[in-house]
């Protein structure tokens, strides 16, 4: 009796599996954005961030995230859900980030991620733009007598993060200078800092913004300095999964709107008062002219909400990067009209 019962359970579960097999598939290729639908149904944007990088994505003691990478997700939440706070943050290591995005655990990866060909083309990801132009640099102790990368000599030991482009750039750099070096790659930034601080390595290399941010965590920040040279291009930007073109567009244009808003002098405080502006481009950005939102299945005020709730790029930069002392000088991250390289396609 007991055996027959057990058999029954087995047969039923086996057939369930078969049914499940038959139902699977579909999803890709449909015109509406599945990610957008799921986000609206869930009521929050699933955003992957770093495990703590001041200025980019960092949580305070109460667990509130802030930073320019966080603000990309906030902008998307403001656009698609009407509330910039409706974001669920998932802190990810450099190693985990792409897998989490591909597996659908997050829908936007906004985690100081360098745009490279192999990442864009090879592993099922799409980069939507650049929200910070960075480059790899070196940090050394001030008393080391090293003032330039040309002072490095063979036998130097360099600490860095594993699973990042810095490991590859470092090799290219030292090889081109014909310097033999000892790479020491840690999984988490905190351990890199601790090991460098303890004297395990002579130099610490990562993106310059990261060096500036991590320096603040050291026991004696003033004992260290960042060398002037930049050895690589690191365009950092948000990433989405391949295969959902509408979602990709939403994220791209949420970022572009913030940059263009700065160009036209639209800020979080004056945005709503500019509805009757003379300039049609400003009117389009604050939603009083044209129907730009309909292309993604959003209402017309999506861009106004981004500017009002999150701010324009200049405001974000000032708040997270400049005023915190990480990189007071905007350098390449200045608008093209002011000598930088921030130049986005027009929202029209």
């Amino acid at each position: 009796m007991f055996n027959t019962f057990k058999n029954l359970i087995l047969i039923v579960s086996a057939s369930l599996v078969l049914i499940a097999c038959g139902q699977q598939g579909g999803g890709a290729g449909s015109k509406k954005s599945k990610t957008l639908q799921n986000t609206q149904k869930a009521g929050f944007v699933k955003c992957g961030v770093s495990q703590g990088l001041p200025g980019f994505s960092n949580a305070d003691t109460a667990g509130n995230w802030s930073g320019i990478d966080v603000d990309v997700c906030r902008a998307v939440a403001a656009a698609v859900l009407g509330d910039a706070d409706k974001v669920k943050y998932t802190p990810l290591s450099a190693k985990e980030r792409f897998t989490a995005l591909i597996a659908g655990e997050i829908d936007i990866l906004s985690r100081n991620t360098t745009w490279t060909l192999s990442r864009d083309a090879d592993i099922g990801l799409t980069f939507v733009g650049v929200n910070f132009y960075d480059g790899q640099g070196f940090m050394v102790r001030k008393n080391s007598g090293i003032n330039s990368v040309n002072d490095f000599q063979s036998g130097i030991s360099a600490c860095t993060n594993t699973g990042t482009t810095t490991e590859l750039n470092m090799r290219d750099f030292f090889n081109s200078k014909n310097i033999s070096y000892e790479p020491i790659a840690f999984e988490k930034a905190d351990e890199v800092v601790a090991a460098y601080d303890a004297g395990r390595c002579d130099t610490y290399t990562t993106d310059k913004s990261g060096l500036a941010a991590q320096r603040t965590k050291m026991t004696a920040p003033d004992d260290h300095k960042v060398l002037p040279e930049t050895i690589s291009k690191e365009p950092l930007g948000p990433v989405v999964r391949q295969g959902d073109a509408v979602w990709e567009d939403i994220v791209r244009w949420s970022l572009n709107v913030m940059i263009e808003a700065e160009e036209y002098g639209i800020t979080s405080s004056n945005a709503s008062s500019l509805k009757d502006s003379e300039n049609p481009q400003i009117k389009r950005l604050v939603g009083s002219e044209g129907e730009l939102g309909s292309a993604f299945g959003l209402d017309n005020e999506w861009s106004l909400r981004i500017i009002e709730q999150v701010g324009n790029y200049g405001e974000i930069y000032e708040k997270h990067i400049a005023s915190t002392g990480i990189m007071p000088d905007r350098g390449p991250n200045e608008l093209w009209t002011k000598g930088g390289i921030l130049y986005v396609a027009p929202a029209r």
Partner: peptide, 20 residues
């Protein structure tokens, strides 16, 4: 965790990251 380049750090870490 402490940057000893074993199979997990080198292969399931860096190599995984670079190749996806």
């Amino acid at each position: 965790a402490i940057a000893y380049p074993d199979i997990v750090l080198v292969f399931a870490g860096t190599a995984l990251m670079q190749t996806g």
